[in-house]
Design a protein around this nucleic acid. Sequence first.
DNA 1: CGCCCTTTTGAGGCATTTCAAACATTGTGG
DNA 2: CCACAATGTTTGAAATGCCTCAAAAGGGCG
Lengths: 249, 249
Amino acid sequence: MRANVIDFPRTSGGCSSCASRRSCVLNSGEFCDDRAGAPHASGPIARGEHIYRQGDRLEALYVLRSGSAKSYIDSEDGLEQIVAFHFPGELLGFDALGDDSHRSSVVMLETATLCRVPYQSCSSAFSRSPELWTALVRAGARQMSVAHAHGLALGQKTAVARFAGFLLDLSARFGNRGCSRVEFNLSMPRQDIANHLSLAVETVSRLFGDLQAGGIIAVDRRHVRILALDELQRTAGYPVADEPSAAGN
Amino acid sequence: MRANVIDFPRTSGGCSSCASRRSCVLNSGEFCDDRAGAPHASGPIARGEHIYRQGDRLEALYVLRSGSAKSYIDSEDGLEQIVAFHFPGELLGFDALGDDSHRSSVVMLETATLCRVPYQSCSSAFSRSPELWTALVRAGARQMSVAHAHGLALGQKTAVARFAGFLLDLSARFGNRGCSRVEFNLSMPRQDIANHLSLAVETVSRLFGDLQAGGIIAVDRRHVRILALDELQRTAGYPVADEPSAAGN
DNA sequence: CGCCCTTTTGAGGCATTTCAAACATTGTGG
DNA sequence: CCACAATGTTTGAAATGCCTCAAAAGGGCG
């Protein structure tokens, strides 16, 4: 259990030398090697730069290799919603497969690198590398579950519960990448957290304060330490011990 | 424009005689024919019956042939969220591809029939019928966009806007199936609408009343007529003419 | 015909937003 | 290196949209 790192490692080169290999959606077949045509890291992409924008024609899918990003959608009436935050190993662009044009935009939260997977059609993708294609579809289906769970949280959970759930989600994802589950740095501003959870920035700020006052977390700017994981889970609505579970709606 | 039917037609037999063919996710390749092994209609499934439940192992994907259904998820803390309503031609079960177990449950809202597409693995599915598989993945990706849009609505739109958007969504989907866009029957109770939009039943009831009072719709139990489509769109937040569009969050 | 489920209506409460302003932080140019 | 501007964060007080609670009316079905 070497889980005390609080920042993602960064390497260059092919998959075999990739620090994010362990949690990479591509890491499930022999295609993940330093062969010609295999996925490879891009050059560094700066914070604020877009990988693609809503409406862009689908040219490639991407896998985040290092750094972090957010994807968001714009509605016809000018609303904007951050659909997800992304960390190394995660698939970007799946939702463009519907009609070959991106239905969301992706922008980096910090300097990052990514692997580009050129795309032409499902058929060619599958023919070229069946395992790769299979892994991508499975990752897409998982994203669907995440989206649904997020929708449930947005509609039915209180502000604290959503917020606690957000921290736990980050905790788990960092943990899965070999980083600490209880201490990490947020790569996004409060505003982005607020938008993602559909809360006012002020509310997010207050929630940080409340959880800290309750001894559940310790916050310093973007640095977060989880002091009472069980309490945080309880707050998020996850049954921890033998609690009375609330009936839905 | 023969769009004056207010109920979905029902037929039996193969794809070539399917009344829902025009809007079917399967209708994009030669696999959609009355060959051996091609998709075929099931016997009638009664209202309240489940096709599969959250946690069930993935054995097949389904396409709704007639009738309507809802899919919902249960959270660890007992909350339940209706993720989507389904109409003829739509794909069911995509989210199970992530780890081969269903992440949601599907139950019929009225007596229905569906086509079963046995599933073993992405590879076998693709090998057996590349076009079918391609169509399914594309449908899955489109569902992702829908889920994201729904999340945006849940978090950032007011109750009326969500409700109006819901009616417009139904309107469009009925229209795409050759039914009337302005007059239709709801196949789900108020409670289900409320849950899907994350509102209280009482609120939904009041919203029906409000829109009717405003002359925008006419309601009689589950029968709905849209009297002022443009007003409804405005209410939903869609820019109709040259309106001031609100800045997002 | 009567029971039960669905739908409607009313009144009050509360979680979260909105508005307003101070404060901290980072980056920039002098 | 410091002043200044721009951005990000925190805190307080008032406003509000939707929910909760309570109860009655309407329809469907045995």
